[in-house]
Design a protein around this nucleic acid. Structure first.
Lengths: 241, 241
DNA sequence: ACCTGAACACCGTTCAAGT
DNA sequence: ACCTGAACACCGTTCAAGT
C-alpha cells in the first residue's frame, strides 16, 4: 500500500528440524500466517500443520486464539516502538513514533483490527508511554498530558486502521492507483444533490499519498496542541454559550 | 418491532410468525441481536430461529453475513447523521455531528469494528459528507478540504472505536467506575522505570469522562484547523530540515 | 511435562426439493 | 418467486491416551 515496509523481518528460518515447540515459535508462525494470508488465514488447522503437531500441543502453550492474537499484536507494536527516535525536537520525535506505528500497521494490517478492539488494555500503555514522553518534552502542562496524548494516539490508530482497511480490501498484490481510481469512480457516481462535498473532493482523494496525508494530520494535531496547551490562554476555538 | 397494532383480524398463537420475510425485517433482527448479544451473538442459527425460517430464506434476501453487517452499520450511521444540527457556528455543528456519531457507536459498539474495517468504502462517504460541509462552512480553503475532513473523521472513528472497545470488554451491565478502577490498578503496577509517563497519568485516566474527553479532542483538532488552514500563513508547527 | 489426534459443538453457506 | 431444512466443509476447543 504505502512504500517499502522495511520492518525488521526475521531472517533465520530453521528448515524441517523438529525444533521444540515453544510459545515463541507458535507466535512467530501465527504472525507469518497473518501477514501472508490475512486474518481469516490464521487457523489452528493450518497452524497445526505448519508446526507439525496437533492442536492440543498448541493449547499447551497458548490459552486460546484470542491470546495468540493479542501476543502477536503486542510483539509487532513493541518492535515498532523499539526504535528510539533521534530527532532533536519533540515534534519530530512524535512524527517519527507516529510514522513507525503507521508503517508497522501498514505492513501488518491485522494489527489495526486487534488494536481497535483492545481499548485501554494490552498494548495501549506501550503506545501511550512512547507518545506521552514526547508530549511531556513538548512542554505541555501535566494536567493536560492525558487528553493530549490520548488524542494523538486515537488519531494515529484511527488513521492507521483506515489505511490498513483499504490495503486489506485489495490484497497485498493489488495496485494502489487502481484502488483509488475505482473508489474515486464510485464517489463520482453519488447523487450530486446528496453528496456535493464528497464529489468536490474526489480528485483530492484520488491523488492523495497515504503517508503524506497521515503526516499532515499529525501536524494538524500538533498545531492544535500548540494552540490549546502551549500558550498562556485558551485561544482560537470558543464555543457558543 | 412488536406488532401490537392489528389484533382481531387474525388469531396468531405463535408469537411473531406470519409477517412476510423481508430485507428490512432481517436487518432489524440482526441489529437487535448485535445490540443485545454482541458481535458473536449474531448467528444464522439464532437469526433463523428468531425469524422462524430456514437459513435459505435469509440468503434469498441477503448475500451473506458480511452484507448483513454492512447494511446494519450503514443504517445506524445514517440514523445518527440524519439529525440536522441546529447550532449556528460551523464549529458547534461539527461538535454536534461528532457527538452524534460517538453516541451512536457507544450505543452500538459493533459498529466501530465494522467501520474500522471498511476503509473508504460503504458508509464512509456519508460521514465525510456530513463533516465536510461544515468544514467548508468554516472557511477552510477548498484545497485543504480533503485532509481537514479526513483528519476529523479519523479522529472521531478512532476515539469512538477505543471507547466502544472499552464498553465491549465489560458488557452493557457493568459499572464504568469499576472498569476504570481496574485498569488504573493495572497501570499502577507497571514497571516505574519503563512506564513513568503512563503511571503519571493514571489518575487522569481513572477520573476522565469519555464524552468530555472526546469533545476536548474535537476542540483540539478544530484548533489545529484554525491554526493551519484558517490563517494566511503556515504557522505554529515547523519541521526540521 | 509435553504431545497426539480423534471427537465435539458450532459456524456460514449451499441446494435439491417443495409451495 | 419465495421458502424449507438437511447436508457440507470448516472452525475453535477439549480430552483420554500416549511418551
Amino acid at each position: 500500500m504505502c512504500q517499502d515496509g522495511a520492518v525488521a523481518t526475521r531472517t533465520q528460518r530453521s528448515p524441517r528440524r523438529t525444533e521444540a515447540l515453544s510459545r515463541e515459535r507458535i507466535v512467530e508462525a501465527a504472525v507469518e500466517l497473518l501477514d501472508t494470508t490475512g486474518e481469516s488465514g490464521l487457523t489452528f488447522r493450518v497452524l497445526t500443520e505448519r508446526l507439525a503437531t496437533g492442536p492440543g500441543a498448541i493449547y499447551h502453550h497458548v490459552a486460546n486464539k484470542g491470546e495468540l492474537l493479542t501476543v502477536a499484536t503486542d510483539e509487532i507494536v513493541a518492535a515498532a516502538l523499539a526504535v528510539e527516535p533521534l530527532a532533536s525536537s519533540p515534534q519530530d520525535r512524535i512524527r517519527a513514533v507516529a510514522l513507525g506505528l503507521f508503517d508497522a500497521i501498514d505492513a501488518h494490517p491485522w494489527v489495526a483490527t486487534q488494536l481497535s478492539d483492545s481499548g485501554w488494555q494490552a498494548t495501549t500503555p506501550r503506545i501511550l508511554e512512547s507518545i506521552g514522553r514526547q508530549v511531556g518534552a513538548l512542554g505541555v502542562p501535566e494536567d493536560d498530558w492525558f487528553i493530549t496524548t490520548t488524542v494523538l494516539m486515537q488519531y494515529i490508530l484511527g488513521a492507521a486502521a483506515q489505511n490498513a482497511a483499504n490495503a486489506r480490501h485489495v490484497g497485498p498484490d493489488a495496485n494502489r492507483a487502481e484502488l483509488l481510481g475505482a473508489m474515486a469512480a464510485e464517489w463520482a457516481e453519488l447523487d450530486p444533490g446528496d453528496y456535493p462535498f464528497t464529489r468536490a473532493v474526489v480528485g483530492q482523494m484520488r491523488d492523495h499519498d497515504d503517508r503524506e496525508q497521515f503526516l499532515a494530520g499529525i501536524d494538524l494535531v500538533l498545531a492544535g496542541i500548540t494552540a490549546l496547551h502551549l500558550t498562556g490562554r485558551q485561544a482560537a476555538v470558543h464555543r457558543e454559550p
